[in-house]
Structure formats: structure tokens, C-alpha cells
Design a protein around this nucleic acid. Structure first.
Length: 650
RNA sequence: GCCACCGUAGCUCAGUCGGCAGAGCGGCUGACUUGUAAUCAGCAGGUCGGGAGUUCAAUUCUCCCCGGUGGCUCCA
């Protein structure tokens, strides 16, 4: 029977079937980098016999090929562990796309980083033995017999293989894996790999299940690619906001007095305040009225809002004069009190309140992280109280706002939109009627789709009070963090909670829907993300010091003072370095501090009443008029330009 | 909270197989008065995260605690 072999998307040949994919490719003269095949679009092993269909070679350099390589590398890891620790019980070990690599969860005694080296050596040894990786097709009973000593694999076989059905296992040397494959042809294909770290995980992610050792590693088709990746990781570590935050003196932590309570220094506070000013402008444009609410309330409020029953473990609570108080973990109940102060007409909806509200959440000790996960956090919070027919328009405006902020103003392109819906099998966990959920979820979906945004649906991740759209952004080392959020809430406005109302044109009362939203998410996490995004080289409007004046020789000092005063008078954040350091040293310091522009003032500038401008990208424009420079700088600041461009030569 | 690793000067890090604690940068002082990515010299700076134990002697070994990092879990 004929097999159509697609050599490239355009080039096809037809060959006779009935032999292995490997044989077919070999006869067509394909190289050794072919490690698997695709039959009618499905990945298979080279050793599979092909009868008919469309067959494509899968190169180790392709996306599929690399995934197979990493999957096989995970097996190699489990194989090595099994040789070194005969009692170890491998569970699952998948490839991971982001960050690129793989892991394997194994039940075994805890290991150290020295052990990791040993395991890696053993992997190399097994790779060099170049075992053939052989596929075995086995009946369910045979598989259960084969893995009878491994309760994890047995559980998987019971679940995944039908009674009376068959599945596959792969054998390399004495090591056998229950796995559907495909895999590289032999262990010798896995050459460029490295084990990265060890942690723990729970079987199937449940805290009460057995604890497993998770070993992370990565693998690439070539040693060069592996090296390149490891270098990239090293480079990324230099952008870590904790490192840059200390170097540029933006914030400090004093864990002995307040673990995960960030303290913002003068320079960091400038960035925070610039971020606030910008968002304040956007909020005002979007119809939000800024409010302010206290940092603590009696727990009577938190009981009414449901926080005492749903969020108590994360709250800072205190008792005073026999009354219990709680630091606010969220701003919404405060905003609800503001909404409740008067009667509302349908004509006045939506009502919108915003607040840069600092909230306090007791996060478990192992989860905090620099500015990215803290216990005191300031949200660019806002609540819109809307009629149900206004949901889509309101959400649409927020999506536009998110896009403007991230794409345009900050140049952050890699956003991950998530639509979190309720778990349809557990409806009782959620508040509100089926109809309302259906309408709200559909509306959110439509808003995303009408804007052509790719999004992931996260079933079961909705808040109990309503579905939501979240936006995640990556940090320097590739972890995703949630920043923006748009949450629909039918719960707090209802009659069992705050019983919020507006009256319609027929004099009927309705509950408004609450939209909880934050664009940055929190100033803290957002600052962490942009520090890494810009690697500390902020756009001019955000830079704590926008211009530094450097003098060459003491004769230039009076003139430098004059220029300094002029820039300061224009509202530019400027400082002055008249130290006796060499000009080289002053430039180096400014560069290390990522100061956008430096003015170099020496004899020439003094005598001609000009300035020489050098930017942090080492571009320079000599002897220009001060006014010209000031004009351009002010323009870059007021337009919140992403790039510094004064020294650009066209 | 769980597991592994880590904690030495403001920062980056060396060091002690148990015997008076080191460097570079930064800071201070002085000299130099400088033209595009580190001028030279001197000085100061440490309860070696905290507590307990073993020891003639602990920064080093043991235990407990605190904190950090990476994961896991959690994340209204």
C-alpha cells in the first residue's frame, strides 16, 4: 500500500508501505537527525511499521523533536536515579516548554546538589552505553504485573488503560517506563543536557499525597544550544529586580523587622509616584472617582463581605478593647460602603471608584518573593458598579486600557490573557444563578474575541463570586505573574451580603454587578516586573534621575550650577557631579546608574554657553543649545516616550 | 506551611580539615584639577544571621530558631 512521505511542506514522494518509518526514511536518504515520525499528523516512533497514510520525518531540531528529546531525557534521568537508588519509584516526567526542559517526580529520599552531580554523571554514562530505546506493546494485565512494585505507575495504568486494552512501555537496558512515547531511538541521542535543581512536589499536586522529589533539567539537540541557553539564563539573572533594586537603590527589605514588607527609598518612591500619576490620569479619563478608605476595619465588615469565612488565614487581625479589627486584605468592602451612602438611579450607573489602596495579606512564609509576592501591597484598585447590560462595554474599556498601558506605554508585548470560568461540575461552590453566570462568561469571552485576543480558558479558576479575566506577564527568569485582573462579582451586591441597589425606569430595584479591576495589579509587583523588563534602564519619565551634569575641571563648576538650576527650574530631575573624579569615572558611574542623559560641561561648553549630551546608550551630541535639550527632554517626559532619542542621529 | 540549598564589612566574595577574620568595590581623609566606561595613597569599617550544646578553644562541629533563594502547595 502506498505511503505519501512529506519531505518538506511542498515536496512529497510516494513509497511502498509495510516497513518501519526508519527504513522508509533511510531509503530516501534522510539523515541521522530524524528521531521520530508523524503519521497523519500523530507523533510515532521510527520503529513503527507504516502501512499507509501521510508520513513526515521529525527532526531532532524541530519543535516536536526537541520535545521528544526532552521527554527521553526525563526517562534517562529516571533511569539513572533507578540505578543509583534501587528503591526509588519514578512517577511522571514530562518535557516542559517554558522554561525549556523537563522534570521527573520520583519518590525517593531527599537529595542534595552533590547528589545531582552524581545523577548527571550516571546519565552521561547511560547515554554513552547507547541503549536502544525499544517499544513494547503490552496488555493492561502485563503492564500491571511489570509495574507491580510501583504504586504510582500502577495507578496510572489502571486509570489510563482500558480493561482488556493495550498500551506501551519503553525499555532501555534494564529500565522500563510506562509511557505512550514516542522517544528518540537510543540513549546516545541525549548528549546535551544538564540537571538544574531539585525541589519537592506532591503526587498529583495534592498536599496530602506522598511527597516526591522533583528534579529539573534541560536538554537540547546540540551542546552549543545548551550553552547558549545556560548563558541566557545567566544573563537573565542579572536583570533580577532584587539585584537591580539594590544596585539602583530603589527599595530595601528588612526581613528581621518585616519579612516581605518592601520599603521604598527616595528613588523607588519616584518611580512609584510616576506610576500612580499615570494611572490616575487614565482612571480619571475612564470615569473613576478617586476615594480613600482606612487600612483597617472592625471584623464586622469582613464578616459581611465574606472575608472572615473565606480569607481569614491571610488576614492580619488584632483585638483592642474587646473588639476585633482586621487590616484590609482588599479594598472592595470599603468602596461598597461609599456606594451605599446614597440611593442610586439606573441613569447614574456605572458608578466607579478608584483607590491606590494598600492592603495587607499574610502570605505563607515560603511563597514570598522580592517585590513580586509581598505582604503589604498597593493595588491600583477600582470598582465599577454596573447594570448587567453594561458589563461588556465596561469590560471592553478595561481591556483597551490594559493594552494601552502594557503595549504602548511600557512596551511589554508578552501578555497572557486568561478567562477563568467556574467548574461546571461543582456549581454549588459558586454564588449566583446559572443564567447570570452564563451571561457574564459569554460577555467576557465576546470582549476578548472582539478584540482578537488569544486567551486561555481556565475552568474552575473563577472567583466564587464570578468569572474573571486575568493578565499574566513573565519575569526575567520566565515565571508568570498575574498583574491585571478584571473580575465580575454578583455576590457582594446581593441581598445576603451588602444588598446594593439601584432603581430602574419602572421603579424596580436591582442589584448592580460589581467589577473589581486593577491594571498594574499592584504597584509592588508591577515595579518588580518593569525593573526586570527595562533591566533598570527606565524610560525618561520614570527615571529617578533624568539628567546628570558632569564637570570637567573646577572652572566649569559655576556654569554647571547655572545649568543645574535651569533644568531644576523646568521640573527636570537633575543632579550634579562636581567631584574631583576623572571624567571617565563620572561617566562610568552615571552609566552604572543607568542615568538616561548626562551633560558634560568643560571649557568648551562654558565658553560657548552650550552643553554636550551623552546618553546611556553611549550616543553623543556635542555643543548643543541648552534650550534645545530642555525642550526635547520635556517632550519625552510629557509623552512618556519609551525610548530616549535626543542623541539619535537620523 | 513542605523539601533542598544558602546567610562572613554597605556591596561582591575569599578564608578557617576547630587556634587573634581577609580582598576588591563603596565610605572617610589627603594629594591630583582632570575631555568621554575605574587617578594615587592612607584610614575607618565585622558579636562571621540569633540562641543553646560539644571543646582548653567554635565563624568553623551538633541541635533549635530567624531570614533569604529555587521549587511544591496556596493565591478573593
Amino acid at each position: 500500500m502506498p505511503v505519501v512521505v512529506k519531505l518538506t511542506p511542498k515536496k512529497e514522494v510516494t513509497v511502498e508501505g509495510g516497513k518501519t518509518a526508519e527504513k522508509i526514511f533511510e531509503e530516501l536518504g534522510l539523515g541521522k537527525d530524524i528521531i521520530a515520525a508523524k503519521l497523519n499528523g500523530k507523533l510515532i516512533d521510527l520503529t513503527d511499521i507504516i502501512l499507509e497514510g501521510t508520513l513526515e520525518p521529525v527532526s531532532i531540531h524541530s519543535k516536536d523533536g526537541i520535545e521528544i528529546l526532552r521527554h527521553s531525557a526525563a526517562h534517562l534521568l529516571a533511569h539513572a536515579v533507578s540505578e543509583l537508588y534501587p528503591d526509588a519509584k519514578p512517577t511522571i516526567g514530562p518535557p516542559v516548554e517554558d522554561p525549556p526542559g523537563f522534570y521527573y517526580d520520583i519518590e525517593m529520599p531527599p537529595i542534595s546538589s552533590d547528589d545531582l552531580k552524581k545523577i548527571e554523571e550516571k546519565m552521561r554514562e547511560i547515554s554513552n552505553r547507547n541503549y536502544k530505546i525499544e517499544k513494547m506493546v503490552l496488555k493492561k494485565e502485563e503492564l500491571l504485573q511489570m509495574f507491580r512494585d510501583n504504586p504510582f505507575k500502577s495507578e496510572l495504568i489502571k486509570e489510563e488503560v482500558e480493561d482488556g486494552g493495550k498500551s506501551t512501555a519503553y525499555k532501555q537496558g534494564n529500565y522500563v517506563e510506562f509511557c505512550t512515547g514516542p522517544h528518540v531511538p537510543s540513549t546516545g541521542y541525549i548528549k546535551a543536557f544538564k540537571l538544574l535543581n531539585v525541589s519537592t512536589a506532591f503526587w498529583r499536586g495534592k498536599e496530602d499525597n506522598p511527597k516526591l522529589i522533583r528534579i529539573y533539567g534541560t536538554a537540547f539537540p546540540t551542546k552549543e544550544e545548551l550553552e547558549q541557553y545556560l548563558n541566557m539564563v545567566e544573563e537573565a539573572k542579572k536583570r533580577d529586580h532584587r539585584k537591580i533594586g539594590a544596585e539602583l537603590d530603589l527599595f530595601i527589605m528588612r526581613p528581621e523587622y518585616g519579612p516581605a514588607f518592601p520599603i521604598y527609598t527616595p528613588k523607588g518612591a519616584i518611580i512609584r509616584n510616576e506610576l500612580i500619576d499615570y494611572m490616575r490620569e487614565l482612571n480619571a479619563k475612564a470615569g473613576y472617582e478617586e476615594v480613600w478608605t482606612p487600612h483597617a476595619f472592625r471584623t464586622t465588615l469582613w464578616e459581611k463581605s465574606g472575608h472572615m469565612s473565606h480569607y481569614r488565614e491571610n488576614m492580619f487581625l488584632m483585638e483592642l478593647e474587646n473588639e476585633e479589627y482586621g487590616m484590609k486584605p482588599m479594598n472592595c468592602p470599603g468602596h461598597i460602603l461609599i456606594f451605599q451612602r446614597k440611593a442610586w438611579s439606573y441613569r447614574e450607573m456605572p458608578a466607579r471608584y478608584s483607590e491606590f489602596g494598600t492592603v495587607y495579606r499574610y502570605e505563607r512564609s515560603g511563597v514570598t518573593n522580592g517585590l513580586l509576592r509581598v505582604r503589604s501591597l498597593t493595588q491600583d484598585d477600582g470598582h465599577a458598579f454596573v447594570r448587567i447590560d453594561q458589563i461588556d462595554q465596561e469590560v471592553g474599556k478595561l481591556i483597551d486600557m490594559i493594552q494601552e498601558v502594557y503595549y504602548k506605554t511600557f512596551g511589554i508585548k508578552e501578555l497572557r490573557f486568561k478567562l477563568s470560568t467556574r467548574d461546571e461540575n461543582n456549581r454549588e461552590k459558586y454564588a449566583g444563578s446559572d443564567e447570570v453566570w452564563a451571561v457574564a462568561t459569554t460577555k467576557l469571552k465576546e470582549v476578548l474575541e472582539s478584540r482578537g485576543l488569544a486567551y486561555e480558558i481556565k475552568e474552575g479558576e473563577a472567583a466564587f463570586y464570578g468569572p474573571k479575566i486575568d493578565v499574566d506577564v513573565r519575569d526575567a527568569i520566565g515565571r508568570y505573574w498575574q498583574l491585571s485582573t478584571i473580575q465580575l462579582d454578583f455576590f457582594m451586591p446581593d441581598e445576603n451580603h451588602f444588598d446594593l441597589k439601584y432603581v430602574d425606569e419602572n421603579n424596580q430595584y436591582h442589584h448592580p454587578v460589581m467589577i473589581h479591576r486593577a491594571i498594574y495589579g499592584t504597584l509592588d509587583r508591577f515595579m518588580g516586573i518593569i525593573i526586570e523588563h527595562f533591566a533598570g534602564a527606565f524610560p525618561l519619565w520614570l527615571s529617578p534621575v533624568q539628567v546628570r551634569i558632569l564637570t570637567v575641571g573646577e572652572n566649569a563648576v559655576p556654569y554647571a550650577n547655572q545649568v543645574f538650576g535651569k533644568l531644576k527650574g523646568e521640573g527636570i530631575r537633575v543632579d550634579l557631579d562636581t567631584s574631583t573624579n576623572t571624567i571617565s569615572k563620572k561617566i562610568r558611574n552615571a552609566h552604572d546608574e543607568k542615568i538616561p542623559y548626562v551633560l558634560i560641561l568643560g571649557e568648551k561648553e562654558v565658553s560657548q554657553n552650550k552643553v554636550s549630551v551623552r546618553d546611556r546608550k553611549m550616543r553623543q551630541k556635542n555643543l548643543v543649545n541648552i534650550e534645545e535639550f530642555i525642550g526635547k527632554v520635556k517632550e519625552e517626559i510629557s509623552t512618556r516616550a519609551l525610548e530616549i532619542s535626543f542623541c539619535e542621529t537620523k
